[in-house]
Amino acid sequence: MPTQSNQRPETGAFFARDRAWHAPALTPEYKTSILRSPQRPLLSLDGTISEITGPVFGHSMIGELDNDLIHNYARSGESAIGERIIVHGRVLDENARPVRGALLEFWQANAGGRYRHKKETYLAAIDPNFGGCGRTITDDEGHYAFRTVKPGPYPWPNGVNDWRPAHIHFSVFGHGFAQRLITQMYFEGDPMIWKCPIVQTIPDRAAIEQLIAPLDWGQTIPMDARAFKFDIVLRGRRSTLFENRLEGN
């Protein structure tokens, strides 16, 4: 469990989610959303204690290779095939404060664009040394890093000829259940980003660009791995300056 002693406890409710920044539920170009999108308005609820709290994950649960997808499924002495990369960044909140102790889980296709999954039928080869999942927890400044191979693009049944750009799926736990987020990271310079119906569910170009990790030349390890930097922003909390209180409470 991260040290909380020098931090004021976080008890504020979260800023209202900017729903216009996110994809709407119904995005017909992404066909699966048509039958899986709620049609009624969401019932708004200013977070109660049930949502401003959330589970804590300790660093002790993380295994030594959990943040190394090149080796965490590979046979001893072997490694996954593909372009070796490091993905690193920070988890911040909307107040630009680091989110310490955030659990990040990630999953991806292998270098050929193939997932290790029994429902996956793409003809690209399975890599016997690549499982495709990893996880890590941010440090006190919100930093995280993991090592993997760059995933390949892959075709998917939506339009006749739709392909996903290379991407890594991220799941993020902050400190409150209302911050829960799943998203995808893309790679700088990939022309396929702008052809993807799932990317295009997000209406605002600046929001899409928030999902594109730049090549981080400075952090590239010579003769080993290029680096990409991906910062993640979770919802921020209101300060509890003048919260409503019952008289005498």
């Binding site: 989610r17 900017d18 920044w21 996110h22 994809a23 992404y30 699966t32 959303s33 911040l92 909140d93 909307e94 107040n95 630009a96 889980e105 990630f106 999953w107 997932y115 290790r116 999954h117 429902k119 996956e120 499982g131 495709g132 999942c133 799926h169 799941s171 993020v172 987020l181 799943i182 998203t183 995808q184 799932i198 990317v199 569910t201 997000i202 600046a206 929001a207 899409i208 928030q210 999902l211 993640i232 922003v233 979770l234 919802r235 921020g236």
Partner: peptide, 19 residues
């Protein structure tokens, strides 16, 4: 000095691989 929340994207068909 506020940041924008990272946009959500679908968990996709293979969420079980990661989680």
């Amino acid at each position: 000095h506020r940041l924008k929340e990272t946009p959500s994207q679908t968990a996709g068909p293979y969420v079980h691989i990661g989680l």
